[in-house]
Structures are given as C-alpha cells and as structure tokens.
Design a protein around this nucleic acid. Structure first.
Length: 605
RNA sequence: GCUGGCGUAGCUCAAACGGUAGAGCAGGUGACUUGUAAUCACCAGGUAACCGGUUCGAAUCCGGUCGCCAGCUCCA
C-alpha cells in the first residue's frame, strides 16, 4: 500500500487521523470531507465540459484535498489546470443544486451506458442485483455516489488544483493508467492560503534540500539509489550507531557481522530465490553464482548453525548493522527515504515458543525508547500474510496471533494491514511521516517459523531432545539511511546538540582573539565535543550568518571582554544572544546536554 | 516499471523569434581588522545530462538513452 492509498484507506476506515494537522487547520473534518467530495464532482463536471468523451474513474476526498481519475486520450498538461479551474468557477457561479436520486441497478446501468461511462459500469456490476443505487446530479452532470454532498455548487468557496499524475485504474498495475488530477479545497480562502503556505514551508524541511545545504549526503547518476554520505552525514551516523550499540548492549544483545555476498545456493534454501529474486542483484565468482544480500538473516543463521545450542542460551538476541542491496523500481527512489542500498539495524532473536510474547514486548519497548529519544511520533501497523509467501496456514495464524496478542497486551492501537507481511512471516511495523505527510516504515518486528525449518535450526531442550527455535527478525531504526532522512525533516536540519555534526563554533572578533579561541576550542575537543573556530578575515555578522545557516547549536563570540574574564558570549541558533557565561560552566552544561541526548538547549528562556 | 513534467557554472536561477550563454551566492586573490544573520574590488567557473537528427546555424526544434521531480504500483 503506497502512502497515498494508505492515507485514503485511513480516511475511509477512520482508523487513524493526523491529529496535528487537523488541529492546525481548525476545520470540521466530517463536513470538510463532503465539501471536498463535492469539489471533486465539480472538477469532474468541468473536465467533462472541456474534454468531451472523457471517461470518469473515481474521485474521492482524501486527507488534504481530493482527486478525480480520468480516462482521456488527450494528455492533461499542468498548464491546463488553470483552464479547468476557470470552468469550475463558472460551475460554482451557476450555483447548481446537488440532487440525490435513488434508482435501481438496472436504471443506473442504462443511464451510465448512455453516457458511455465504462469504469462506472464496472463498479456498478459489482453491486448486488436488486440493490438500490444512489446518484448525485448537478446540472447536466451526474455521478454514482453515496454522498453526502454540499447542497449546491455555489457553496464551494476556496479550492485549488495542484497536480496531474498517472494512476492505475483500481490501483492495479495490470490495468490501464488513468490521469489523476489532485486538488485541495477549504471552507474559506484563508484556510486554503494557510494550507498552501504550509506546503511551501514543508518543502523547506525536505531532507534532500537540507541534505545538500548542510552537506550531509549526495546522490549521483553513477549510482542511482546508492547514497553517498559526506563527513557531516557520517558524524550523525556515528552518533546514531553509537547510541544504538550502547542501547543494545544494555538490553542483552550481541553483535555480529556477516558478508555482503554469499553463494546463490544459500538463497535457494532461504526461499529468497523463489520469493524475492526480482529485488536481488547477482554476481559470479570464478565458476559459481553468488547473490548480493537483500537481507541479513541467512548469513546470521549460518553463525547460529556453526555450533550446537542449548535451551539455556535462549532468548539469544543477535544484532547486525548490515548493509543490504535491493533492486527497487526506478520510479520509487526518493532521496534517503527509498534507496537501493541501505543499512538495516537488524537483530535476530532465537527463542523458545513460550518466550515469544515477552520478546515481542521487549522489542516494542526498545522501539518506544528509541523513538522517544528523538521525539518522533509513530503509528503501528500489523501486516498479515501476502499472496507471495511460504509456510503453512497454521504457522501463519499462530504467528499473526502472537503479534496481535503482544499489541493487545500493551494496549497499543494499531492498524491492520492485510496482505502486507514479509514472505516468511507477519510483522508489526512502526510508521512515521515525512515533511509532506507521506508515511514511511521504520521499525519492524517479524515472526518467522520458516527460516528455522528451512535451515533446520535446532537446540537441545531440557529433555535432551532436539527442538526447533522460533525466530524473530526486528529492526528499530529500520534503515539507517531512511532514519537519517526522517530525522533531517523532523528537526528541519537543526539536530539536537548530541547529533549535530558541529556543536560549537567559536567566532573570534579580531585576529588577536584567534589564538585564545583556538585554545578554548581544543579544550572542548578534548572532552569529545565537536567544535571549530571561524578564523576567516570576516566581520562577526558574516560569521554568525554562516553559522546560523549551518544550524550550529552554539556560537561563541570571543573578543577583548571575554579574554579578560574567562567568559564566552553565547549565541544559540534558536534563542539568539544569550549573554556571557563562564567558559567552564558553559562546557559542563554542554557536556550534560550531550550526555542526556537532550532535545532542548540548557539555556534558560 | 508506468503516466506527466524537468535537466544551463559547486548552489539558486536568467537569457522574445533558432544567431553562438549571463547574474547572485559559493571558490581564488588583494584591500579592510572586524562585537551578533551578508565589507569592498578584482579573478576564475559551462563539451548546455548523454547520443543522434533537422538546419547555413541548436541551450532553444525532433528522436533515443540516463537521471531527477510528482503521482501510481511496490517497499526498510
């Protein structure tokens, strides 16, 4: 399920709504939904007037607006949107009442046949015979629709068409691609303006833009989907992985490392060849076929199998920060959020059947701890058996129930995402949104009864017999690359001090202050802090501006006044000038802020 | 992969009609010796994504390839 359809699903099912945005916009969702749905009808009417012969797909209200799908030979260019908007304004000026009609399936069929609406007919055919069909009319236009709607087209006040894009009929890539026009509508102009402004603001947080501005990473034609991390990006990366290691060590994990390239035979055994081949890269070594790993598990399993195990060792929590490569379709690549090579903060937990619930709960707990550290808001999904999968019905049911039970035990709300599990097992996913409200999966917890069978994993139980362990795959960051991208957007590039590539910038006022600034800077570096001195021949204002743009948390001005009293003049990137502080006190406070991974500055308001 | 759009200097962007590419920032040099978001001057920077075609002449028109953007499908 893509982000867009997911949002649609969410809206339709009412499972989840983006509280934050709802509040920000201060609108009544229920009415707004029919308002936007009506806007979709008006747009369809306008398109029908301008492009005779167009066939209608569907046109629902969605989270931030609406869309309608059209089947039309002629391409609707973005330049055509203003013309469609003009026609919509005419329809609004005509103030056509929306009239509901109830008719039989047969009557509806005849009506749609006359209009040559092939897609609507297809929808109609799926309805029960003898069922009543509702239809809404406005002027010469009508649409198969449940409603509700506004009473007349004149009630529409503020709308804007935003973009055109292709969309498969019924979301199935085997079907014809229709042309979809996206738009948004609000109760009044101010709300619309505000929304459009927010859209612009959101674009400034885009990790691709900030990633370049802050010199974090880059992407090149020579390796589409294979990100290059710059020193600043690696600096953040190292803090993240350092935190990750410390956390896992504290929670009873061991860490391993396994190869990127393994014999193809292994991937036949694991089931990847049958279920995941399209996403894999292959290579040859001497006369043999090898695969670049798309997942870390088979390699980890080989370590498990390298010696016998006792039930006393369980649960065995084995982590691996593993680089994987997956061939993703070119059209889905997206900055750091969707790439072809990425590091999974993987772990495999081998355990006894009765340990499953506790281990799942333990992982959920760990995930919560991590997300809270960054102040990230997330959403849970439980994904069940997909079409392409392996294993018995009973195994799947057992695994799905185990995951659901853990969620219920914690009392966590979640959304059921049918058919979206991994090919070897169901999963609990942690989802987070990017700056434009697109949902991305980060952490995942996957129960797997297949791999232990396929690789014949065993342990010696208390009865002295061999048994098969249960395997749990899990990732918390998900992909380090994606997590980094999400963090850039979440913090709008202004990373908390513990993560910031540069934590302190010294700004000597004149040449004579440089040496002293350098000395203080080195003192901070001795403590493991990241600091530098801007000793260029520039005015203070210029250097401040530079540091602000780089989003350095602390700027320390050093001049005569500071040199005399052992003080530093502190400026914070968000709070501005913060007056003078004793340097030793500044250092201690800073160290504490970093140690605590604080999301806020130690400076008082 | 599919639909549509886009690709000009490191970055952000210009240049009616097809007439031979320009600015700001960044970079370099010099001057200034700086007190909280841009000191001044000068210099250097482009095989116009790549390949081919039309034309006397292509950044501009056409075709192909690659990449990027939005969406669809798919996914960590």
């Amino acid at each position: 399920m893509g982000p867009r359809t997911l949002r649609l699903y969410i809206l339709e099912t009412g499972v989840f709504y983006l509280e934050k945005k709802k509040e920000e916009l201060e609108v009544d969702n229920k009415n707004l939904e029919s308002y936007r749905h009506t806007a979709a009808h008006v747009m369809a009417q306008a398109v029908k007037r301008l492009y005779p012969g167009v066939k209608l797909g569907i046109g629902p209200a969605i989270e931030n607006g609406f869309y309608y799908d059209f089947d039309l030979e002629e391409k609707i260019k973005p330049e055509a949107l203003p013309r469609i908007e003009e026609e919509m304004k005419k329809i609004i000026a005509e103030d056509l009442p929306l009239e509901k009609e109830v008719l039989s399936k047969e009557e509806a069929y005849e009506l749609l046949q006359k209009e040559n609406e092939a897609y609507k007919l297809e929808l109609l055919e799926e309805m029960e015979d003898g069922e009543q069909v509702t239809l809404f009319r406005q002027g010469e236009f009508f649409d198969l629709c449940r409603g509700p709607h506004l009473e007349s087209t004149g009630k529409l006040k503020a709308f804007k068409l935003l973009s055109v894009a292709g969309a498969y009929w019924r979301g199935d890539e085997r079907n014809k691609m229709l042309q979809r026009i996206y738009g948004t509508a609000f109760m009044d102009r101010k709300e619309l303006k505000k929304y459009l402004f927010q859209l612009e603001e959101a674009k400034k947080r885009d990790h691709r833009k900030l990633g370049q501005e802050l010199d974090l990473f880059s992407l090149h034609e020579e390796g589409p989907g294979f990100p290059f991390l710059h020193p600043n990006g690696v600096s953040i990366w190292n803090e993240l992985t350092g935190y990750w290691r410390q956390l896992h060590q504290a929670h009873g994990y061991e860490e391993i490392r396994t190869p990127l390239i393994l014999n193809e035979e292994l991937w036949h055994q694991s089931g990847h060849w049958d279920n995941y081949r399209e996403n894999m890269y292959f290579t040859r070594i001497d006369e043999d076929n090898y695969a670049i790993r798309p997942m870390n598990c088979p390699g980890g399993v080989l370590i498990f199998k390298s010696r016998p195990h006792s039930y006393r060792e369980f649960p065995m929590r084995v982590a691996e920060l593993g680089l994987v490569h997956r061939h993703e379709l070119s059209g889905v690549l997206h900055g750091l959020l969707r790439v072809r090579s990425f590091h999974i903060d993987d772990a495999h937990i081998y355990m006894l059947p009765h340990q499953v619930t506790d281990e799942v709960l333990g992982v959920i707990h760990l995930a919560e701890e991590i997300y809270n550290t960054f102040g990230l808001k997330y959403r849970l999904e439980l994904s069940t058996r997909p079409e392409k999968s392996m294993g018995s019905e009973e195994d799947w049911d057992r695994a799905e129930e185990a995951l659901a039970a853990a969620l219920k035990k914690r009392g966590l709300p979640y959304q059921l995402n049918e058919g979206d599990g991994a090919f070897y097992g169901p999963k609990i996913d942690f989802h987070i949104e990017d700056c434009l409200g697109r949902s991305w999966q980060l952490g995942t917890i996957q129960l797997d009864f297949q791999l232990p069978q396929r690789f014949n994993l065993t342990y010696i139980g208390s009865d002295g017999e061999e048994h098969q362990p249960v395997l749990l795959h899990r990732a918390l960051f998900g992909a380090l690359e994606r997590f980094l991208g999400i963090l850039v957007e979440h913090f709008a590039g202004a990373f908390p001090t513990w993560l910031a590539p540069l934590q302190v910038r010294f700004i000597p006022i004149g040449e004579k202050h440089q040496e002293y600034a350098l000395k203080l800077c080195n003192e901070l570096k001795q403590e493991g802090l990241r600091a530098d001195v801007d000793d260029r021949d520039e005015k203070v204002g210029y250097k401040i501006r530079q540091a602000q743009k780089e989003k350095v948390p602390y700027m320390l001005a050093i001049g005569d006044r500071e040199m005399e009293g052992g003080q530093v003049s502190v400026r914070h990137r968000h709070k501005g000038e913060a007056g003078q502080l004793n340097f030793a006190r500044f250092k201690e406070s800073l160290l504490q802020e970093v140690r605590e991974k604080s999301l806020n500055t130690f400076l008082e308001d």
